[in-house]
Design a binder for these strands. Structure first.
Lengths: 113, 113
DNA sequence: TGCGTATTTTCCTTGCAGGTTATTTAACCA
DNA sequence: TGGTTAAATAACCTGCAAGGAAAATACGCA
């Protein structure tokens, strides 16, 4: 995944409405009207949120008559999580190294502080 | 973690400069000048990025003479990852249920399609 | 064809994010 | 005290994101 895609994914996740939509879609596919129902917001506004989610690959949409059911796609979610996970790994390594460094510089003749 | 904190954390992660800063800090603490060095950007701009990271708890800062070393804090990162993880769990459950439903409705007298 | 429902598009406003330069604050050093 | 370095703040500009209202589109149905 490119930097720009990661930008777009995290940006998409930075909005509470969009996270709520994802929450809802994790339970099953839904139409725009169904997704909009819980929000004090016009339909076009929700439609725009869906566009943001679609553009970064977090959801996909099909067509069934006039309906455009939305489906959660986890690839983008996976990529976002992977970035965090990789970072935590580096961070952990760093502390492992710090630990061993602290052990190394500890004079065995002196009582541990 | 509150919704607003999650908003702020994902928003902080949505910028490539800030993610690069986090990458760098995963290797060890650094001063503002050190962090700014790789970027084609003025120091105040980097300072603002650090403020964003600090406000949502992704980094903390101490004082050593004129320097304000930055340190990565993983609590906010953990929260962001947890949200994704929880969501994937719901999503997996949904597919497990769908699987068993498909098994249920399958007529045992007919050859599986 | 014409109507109803679902959804998107267009246009507009508002607010905020990210960048700049210039100035200020904070701390060390001579 | 005055000078230097590190960093933050202030003031400003630009662009874009989020929302609303109104109009357009897409499809099914009578």
């Amino acid at each position: 995944m490119t930097t720009a895609q990661l930008d777009a994914t995290f940006l998409a996740l930075a909005d509470p409405t969009r996270r709520a939509i994802i929450d809802r879609l994790a339970l099953g596919d839904a139409t725009v009207n169904e997704l909009a129902e819980p929000f004090a917001m016009t339909l076009p506004a929700v439609s725009k949120h869906l566009k943001v989610l679609e553009r970064c690959g977090l959801i996909s949409r099909s067509r069934r008559a006039q309906f455009r059911p939305c489906r959660l796609e986890t690839a983008a979610l996976d990529a976002a999580e992977s970035w965090i996970e990789e970072n935590r790994r580096l961070w952990s390594d760093r502390f492992d190294k710090l630990d061993s460094h602290l052990r190394d510089i500890q004079d065995p003749e002196e009582a541990p502080q």
